[in-house]
């Protein structure tokens, strides 16, 4: 077992063996969660602070539950309501928090790189819960675990990621992770929602959804933000659904056993047909939510182990 990271800031710095380590551990947590086994209080005596500078219900709840199950003292800070409104800089907020000696910091921030910046100023292990358009590593890990459990492997699969790639940190982390694990990645979407320089990412890019979905094993849909729907990036919601919304007709181009994923929250009728989302034979969307808790438990467990190892007996960082 190898996992050398001090923080989980993104997928980019992870070695494939570290990804496998997290997934293996998460796998066993997932099984334990299903059997309602009481977990060892691995994080007992540790303080976990969730700092969300951007609204989140699902991710925050998932991290909270993960910490709770492992016995951590979990505290949520609603950052939008607090100090930033009063003009405090991110670094000052970080230093203030650091003085409270947290062990695990879970951070979401609207700006790319902000979590990275914060991690340089604190002694806690920092988990990136999404920074701007940059990365959302636990989402990619939970997606990977979901795929691995559904497909029995996490390599040599053909995986389509569809929709607003340009603004999606989920897409970036997934491209990175699935690429590291040696899968074929196809990106599908209108060119206005493709990031620049995408041809250099080692992926195939499709503007036609049916062509892009041909014979894929996994269809990963992305959420289209409401503010991007009208005129700016795409002409309209209905034209988008017509060309890029996942419905039964388009899905039949994928392999017959292809699974359908979505990081949530879904816009039914915009990027995905409600019937597909609810089809228990195809959709693994609920499994993704379930795996989210397991993956976050595993990530915090591993980071806590490294944190303990790095600390002297008196609790000071070496």
């Amino acid at each position: 077992m190898t996992f050398r990271q001090q923080h989980l800031l993104g997928i980019e710095p992870l070695h494939p063996s570290e990804i496998t380590t997290i997934l293996d551990l998460a796998d066993s947590y997932a099984d334990q969660n299903r059997r309602n086994v009481r977990h060892e209080p691995i994080l007992a005596g540790m303080t976990q602070i969730n700092m969300f500078f951007e609204n989140s219900t699902r991710t925050q709840a998932s991290f909270e539950l993960a910490g709770d199950r492992l016995g951590a003292d979990v505290m949520n800070m609603a950052m939008q309501a607090s100090s930033i409104k009063k003009g405090e800089t991110l670094i000052d907020t970080a230093l203030t928090l650091n003085a409270m000696h947290p062990d695990l910091l879970v951070v979401r921030h609207p700006h790319s790189g902000a979590v990275d910046l914060l991690s340089q100023k604190v002694n806690a292990a920092v988990l990136n819960a999404g920074d701007g358009r940059h990365e959302h590593p636990t989402q990619a890990l939970l997606d990977a675990l979901t795929i691995r459990r559904a497909k029995g492997r996490l390599h040599r699969l053909s995986i389509a990621i569809c929709g607003d790639i340009a603004h999606s940190r989920v897409a970036r982390s997934n491209i990175m992770l699935l690429g590291k694990m040696e899968n074929r990645i196809r990106l599908i979407g209108p060119p206005t929602l493709m990031p620049s320089g995408i041809a250099d990412f080692g992926v195939e890019v499709f503007e036609d959804m049916e062509e892009g979905l041909r014979d894929v094993d996994v269809v990963m849909m992305l959420r289209l933000q409401k503010e991007r729907m009208d005129g700016g990036f795409i002409p309209s919601e209905r034209e988008y659904f017509h060309r890029y919304g996942l419905d039964a007709e388009k899905l039949q181009f994928a392999k017959p056993d292809a699974i359908v994923m979505h990081p949530g929250p879904m816009n039914r009728g915009v990027e995905i047909d409600g019937n597909i989302a609810d089809d228990i034979n195809r959709s693994v969307i609920q499994t993704q939510v379930e795996m989210g808790v397991a993956v976050r438990m595993a990530a915090m467990d591993l980071l806590a182990q490294n944190l303990r190892a790095a600390r002297k007996p008196d609790g000071v960082m070496v």
Partner: peptide
């Protein structure tokens, strides 16, 4: 500047 680096870092770029 837009391009691979901008996209990797998730930063808004200009052509």
């Amino acid at each position: 500047t837009s391009g691979k680096f901008a996209s990797l870092r998730g930063l808004p770029g200009v052509s």
